[in-house]
Amino acid sequence: MIKMMRNIVWNFKKYRFLMNELISRDFKVKYKRSVLGVVWSLLYPILMMIVMAVVFSQMFKFKVEGQNYLVYLMTGIIMFNYFSEASNNGMTSIVVNFGLLNKVYIPKYIFPLSKCLFVGINFLLTLIPWIGLIAASYFGLGEYVCHFNIYFLLLPYVFLCLFIFTVGISFLLSAVSVLLRDMFYIYGIILMIWQYVTPVFYSIQIIPESLQKIFKLNPLYQFLEGARVIVVNGHAPSGTLLLTMGLWAVGMLLVGAIVFKKNQDKFIYYI
């Protein structure tokens, strides 16, 4: 066990530079030929937030009783978007990088992991306008004030759980999609359904009581709830909630890693 851990750490060190390069490659390719370049990483979420805010709170008149709906909505959107983009990119990462895998020995897990990190960095950038939005609530935006409070220190834990969960599911999906290419399409549909059954722009209170239990089995609900309890309600998340998030994250990572490890030697025959 200790030897295995040491191996993992050693591997990490050895391939950290490659991981850096892959992530910076993604950035460079993403913003090639665009005038504003990396500024888009900041501008895009701001514009997206404005659009979403107008659509949901002005056109559809959505609101959550007694809470700042704008902050509620954005917290859900940025977290869910992170999950869907990272897991989608992670899923395709093995197939897309086949040219490399076929020629040089590189640990294969690097590809889904680097995608999750790349999207993760983008996610961290979206936190800047998001914090701006919370600050704006002091000046009356969204009716209710969201106070910056001591529990904000727990947010990194919540985001880390989301990240680990996403890495786990990316491992699982990338392994499965190599063997079964249909997964690309199937997962697209799954994501769509997932987005609607996760309370991103509505509150779980509008679901009939009997169904709420089932909705709460959704790990993404737990992550969103964790962040919202802190930011929107200003409470400390309950111990159960914190524990549930951690368990989902570690459990998914284990499942993903095991499936990935079991199948990775076969990848090369399937691409």
Binding site: L18, E21, L22, R25, K28, V29, G99, K103, V104
Partner: peptide, 26 residues
Amino acid sequence: PMIELGAGFDMELTARENIYLNGAVL
């Protein structure tokens, strides 16, 4: 390994960027 050269190149990137990327791959 020099099995088929340039396996790690990203065609969109410049030569300078590719030196680092390909080096890291190797």
